[in-house]
Design a protein around this nucleic acid. Structure first.
Lengths: 137, 137
DNA sequence: AGCGTGCTTGACGTTAACGTAAATGTAACG
DNA sequence: CGTTACATTTACGTTAACGTCAAGCACGCT
């Protein structure tokens, strides 16, 4: 039977999540992960895998590791602390607002850049055309 | 008559563009600006103002200072070098592609985060409700 | 001369999220 | 027991775009 120890070595964990060992140790140092130790080696439990999933998702959302650490910390107490969960949502909503603002800025920048490019194309076309006033032999 | 020297001191330049002296010196060190010197002091010419305008615009577009330096450098030769201008547009188009990709990712992240929030609200509502199975006295 | 103000040049500090290298350990294989 | 193959800790390096002193000119005014 396949070794269903339910814990992964650092290498297995890295392969499973496509991160480097340095990253996992870093996350542990930052108190984002808490692998158990077998002697000196780390063993990542199911809980660690769940946390890492959340961490990577948080990163995609653009949260900083420190934000993520705080959010994860709030899920631990007992899972039913209303005010803490609401705080969690506050943070998430703030982040959402930031992201939407960022999107708005990005839209503006994209639009501007597009018009700049369009104007530029005209200039190039003008330069490339053998100068209207010269044609007509 | 107002002193129409047409050159600005570093302070005037800072006030005009809302940047710090450090920033202007930094840009000069990075060869993005080339103020003339009156003794030891810097004097920013009209050309510097034009360049700074472009620099700040570039930053809004998300270009790095190094990108901007290269772009600015290409405008200098004589202003009619076709291949260099095309290179400029290449860079701009690449950046545009990056920005649109970023926007797409942001859209996904926003959508995800929104659903997470929505689900979370449900959970909170569930917790807040005095447990359905308990009612009905 | 002395003072205040503004400008100058270094040069080190900052932040985030790891990368990278060095020295050491240890577990298993043959 | 020696080698191979990972693991571990420690600690300095990296990148971008400035911030933040520190020490010292340079000018005009009094």
């Amino acid at each position: 039977m396949t070794d269903t120890t339910d814990t992964l070595t650092i290498r297995e964990m890295c392969d499973a999540f496509d991160v480097t060992p340095r990253t996992l140790r870093f996350y542990e140092a930052k108190e984002l992960l808490f692998p158990i130790r077998l002697g000196t080696r780390r063993l990542f439990t199911r809980a660690d895998r769940a946390r890492l999933t959340l961490i990577l998702r948080g990163k995609r959302f653009g949260f900083s590791l420190e934000d993520i650490r705080q959010l994860l910390a709030m899920y631990e107490p007992d899972g039913s602390n209303l005010t803490q969960m609401q705080r969690t949502f506050e943070i998430a909503r703030d982040r959402l607002a930031q992201m939407e603002a960022q999107r708005a800025e990005l839209d503006v920048a994209i639009a501007e850049l597009k018009t700049q490019l369009a104007e530029g194309e005209k200039m190039i076309a003008a330069f490339r055309a053998p100068a209207v006033e010269q044609g007509r032999p």
